[in-house]
Amino acid sequence: MGQPTLPPVVYAPTIDLDGATRIRMHEMRDGRTALFVYSAIDRLEEQYGDDARWVLLGVDDLQHAFEQVPYDLLFLDRELHPEGARGE
């Protein structure tokens, strides 16, 4: 079984930190850092809410994000809480 293919662009959630917009990273239970991206805006909104802030990223943008703030895992269309609950 091969690696899943990313679409040409993905939506990534963002947060405001210290007056700047940043891509939102998640710390996993094992301490690794993960970036969750979504293939469609409605999929992102299902996880983060209708008023969620986001940025559209291409493959080169994902590499640039990794160079700025390295992450260990990249998830496509992953549920934040598999049981469907929102929040952190």
Results as ranks from 00 to 15, higher is better:
Gly2His: 02
Gly2Ala: 13
Gln3Phe: 06
Gln3His: 12
Gln3Glu: 07
Pro4Phe: 03
Thr5Pro: 02
Leu6Tyr: 03
Pro7Met: 12
Pro8Asn: 07
Val9Lys: 12
Val9Gly: 06
Val9His: 06
Val10Thr: 09
Val10Gly: 02
Tyr11Pro: 01
Tyr11Thr: 01
Ala12Glu: 06
Thr14Met: 06
Thr14Ala: 10
Ile15Cys: 14
Ile15Lys: 11
Ile15Val: 14
Asp16Phe: 11
Asp16Ala: 10
Leu17Ser: 08
Leu17Glu: 11
Leu17Asn: 10
Leu17Lys: 12
Leu17Arg: 15
Asp18Leu: 15
Gly19Gln: 10
Gly19Cys: 10
Ala20Ile: 05
Ala20Phe: 10
Ala20Ser: 14
Ala20Gly: 08
Thr21Asn: 07
Thr21Trp: 03
Arg22Met: 09
Ile23Ala: 15
Arg24Gly: 10
Met25Arg: 14
Met25Lys: 09
His26Gly: 07
His26Asp: 15
Glu27Ala: 15
Met28Cys: 13
Arg29Asn: 13
Asp30Tyr: 04
Asp30Ala: 00
Gly31Arg: 13
Arg32Lys: 11
Arg32Ala: 05
Arg32His: 11
Thr33Cys: 12
Ala34Gln: 10
Ala34His: 08
Leu35Thr: 00
Leu35Phe: 01
Leu35Trp: 03
Leu35Glu: 04
Phe36Asp: 03
Phe36Arg: 10
Phe36Tyr: 14
Phe36Gly: 01
Val37Asn: 02
Tyr38Gln: 06
Ser39Met: 04
Ser39Leu: 05
Ile41Asp: 04
Arg43Ile: 02
Arg43Asp: 04
Arg43Gly: 06
Arg43Lys: 13
Leu44Met: 07
Leu44Arg: 02
Leu44Tyr: 07
Leu44Trp: 00
Glu45Ile: 01
Glu45Tyr: 09
Gln47Lys: 00
Tyr48Trp: 11
Tyr48Phe: 14
Tyr48Lys: 08
Gly49Val: 06
Gly49Trp: 09
Asp51Thr: 04
Asp51Glu: 13
Ala52Asp: 06
Ala52Tyr: 02
Arg53Leu: 08
Arg53Trp: 05
Trp54Glu: 07
Trp54Phe: 14
Trp54Thr: 05
Trp54Ser: 07
Trp54Gln: 06
Trp54Tyr: 15
Val55Phe: 00
Leu56Trp: 00
Leu56Cys: 09
Leu57Arg: 01
Leu57Asp: 00
Gly58His: 09
Val59Lys: 15
Asp60Cys: 04
Asp60Tyr: 00
Leu62Cys: 00
Leu62Met: 10
Leu62Ile: 01
Leu62Asp: 01
Leu62Asn: 07
Leu62His: 04
His64Tyr: 02
His64Glu: 06
Ala65Gln: 14
Phe66Thr: 02
Glu67Met: 12
Glu67Trp: 05
Gln68Trp: 08
Gln68Ser: 12
Gln68Thr: 10
Val69Asp: 13
Pro70Cys: 09
Pro70Ile: 09
Tyr71Arg: 04
Tyr71Lys: 06
Tyr71Cys: 06
Tyr71Ile: 03
Tyr71Thr: 00
Leu73Gly: 01
Leu74Asn: 01
Phe75Gln: 08
Phe75Thr: 03
Leu76Val: 00
Leu76Tyr: 10
Leu76Gln: 03
Asp77Ala: 04
Arg78Ala: 12
Glu79Tyr: 07
Leu80Arg: 14
Pro82Phe: 10
Glu83Cys: 10
Glu83Leu: 11
Gly84Ser: 11
Ala85Asp: 14
Ala85Cys: 10
Ala85Ile: 11
Arg86Leu: 15
Arg86Ile: 12
Gly87Asp: 15
Gly87Lys: 15
Gly87Asn: 08
Gly87Tyr: 12
Gly87Glu: 09
Glu88Trp: 15
